[in-house]
């Protein structure tokens, strides 16, 4: 059963990460907290999906994010006036109505490639050997003359950096493409 929720999460929720982060960044003054918020939105979505998969994941994601931010604002000692204003004039329907962002296989590859290029040299090299050339971690270690724990550490760092790079890449792409037609400006400070 959990497998189904996992699959739903990977298939339906994670592809929305770029727009979720964009949404959170737009409505939350402290940008350093965005990844904490994102994680909490994910956890809440996952827990609620465990009781039954939602019909409209995107709508649920936005309402979950909104409720989380309201909870946070209520508990926070210092809240910027702007943030409160935003919540009051909040109309999420324009965000929810946005079209699914689709990328072609080629765009996807280009995106992955440019994300890979943002990694530090050694990490990039190791991720390249592991994922492009298909070497195992052991083979990678041998080829580079480093220890296996070193390779493992770079793999760990590499996948995190890739995830972040992919999310921010999506943000840039999305902003350029449809920043204008989504009514998002209304919420900008």
């Amino acid at each position: 059963m959990t497998e189904t929720v996992d699959q739903w999460f990977m298939r339906e929720v994670l592809p929305l990460e770029t727009e979720l982060e964009r949404f959170l960044a737009r409505h939350w003054a402290n940008h350093s907290e965005v990844s904490d918020l994102r994680q909490e939105v994910y956890s809440r979505l996952y827990r609620s999906a465990a009781n039954g998969l939602p019909r409209n994941t995107r709508a649920l994601m936005y309402s979950t994010a909104r409720h989380l931010m309201i909870d946070m604002v209520r508990r926070k000692r210092v809240v910027s006036i702007d943030t409160v204003m935003d919540f009051e004039s909040w109309d999420v329907s324009s965000e929810e109505a946005g079209p699914f962002e689709t990328v072609s296989a080629r765009q996807e590859l280009t995106m992955l490639q440019s994300a890979l290029e943002t990694l530090p040299r050694r990490t990039r090299e190791i991720v390249y050997m592991r994922r492009v050339q298909g070497l195992s971690q052991r083979e990678t270690a041998r080829a580079l003359g480093v220890s296996e724990p070193t390779v493992e550490r770079h793999v760990s760092q590499g996948v995190r950096l890739l995830a972040d790079a992919l999310a921010s890449r999506g943000i840039q792409r999305g902003e350029q493409k449809k920043g204008r037609d989504r009514g998002g400006r209304r919420y900008e400070r």
Binding site: M10, V103, S104, A105, Q113, R131, V132, L166
Partner: peptide, 30 residues
């Protein structure tokens, strides 16, 4: 974990760079 694992699986598509012939399926694409 799921989030990073999804990225890890996506990164497997980079194997297409090896030959330029194939691109693995972006599961994000509808």
């Amino acid at each position: 974990f799921l989030r990073l694992y999804a990225v890890w699986q996506r990164s497997g598509r980079l194997a297409a760079l090896r030959s330029g012939q194939l691109i693995e399926h972006p599961s994000l694409v509808r």
